[in-house]
Amino acid sequence: MNNLQALKTLSYANVRRILRIWIQTIVPPAITTALYFLIFGALIGRRIGEMPGYEGLSYIEFMVPGLIMLSVITNSYANVASAFFGTKFQKSIEEILVSPMPSWAIMCGFLVGGIARGFLVGLVVVVTSLFFVQITIDNFTLTLLSILLTSILFSLLGLLNGIYAKSFDDVSIVPTFVLTPLIYLGGIFYSINILPEEWQLISQINPILYIVNFFRYAMLGSSEIDPLIGICLISAFTIVSFLLAYHLIRKGVGIRD
């Protein structure tokens, strides 16, 4: 059995799905980001001026890494959650389960879809931002690494959501009520230094804060939180999520009677 061929096929099928429904997967982040840049960057951001703690950095420049991360996180998550639940709903998961493909290959095939969409949408956001601001990347390798790790982590979390989901509502509950508030309160639009002390402490229990700041460090060369915490946090969550998802798929939770 050629497991790599099977993995390649499932990965390609997932990427093909993203491209087939590009109007749902690629276009919306471009429009949303353009609106963010226009309203919060060009209009309101002009009145804010330089960001405190980031010497010589305008508000719109501060916002770019946050908006890229926002898109990578939400799209990686949504892609795998909906693709996996969609195959369960259409019963096409049976095509995969009856085949000799091992559990790790099934997982990785779906993850490749999430990573691909994370990168694609991240690129779209970068291109959109170029219409509003000049971007300079401080550490290109670290920037790519942080996008890769983040998209892997949120693809895995999306997969866990897809495994447990029994209806379309279940696929949207976590992104709407958990992920979106955490992302918006995770320092995308503001520096936590401007918050009162007690709110700064509360913000520090939000894992997204560390992920966004790690990426901001990679892109801009400075951040308000040690980037090492971010990379350790992402790695730890990724390992735990991978092992959990692997165990669930191997056991057939949510996919076998």
Binding site: M1, N2, N3, Q5, A6, K8, T9, L10, Y12, A13, R16, R20, T87, Q90, K91, S92, I93, E94, E95, I96, V98, S99, P100, M101
Partner: peptide, 28 residues
């Protein structure tokens, strides 16, 4: 196995459904 219910993506092209299924079995 030919299952009772149709278990392929209705939005895919016929040739893609079949070639993809072959790929899951490691067929080049």
């Amino acid at each position: 196995v030919v299952n009772q219910e149709f278990n392929f993506s209705q939005f895919e092209k016929v040739i893609d459904i079949i070639v993809t299924q072959a790929g899951y079995y490691g067929v080049d």
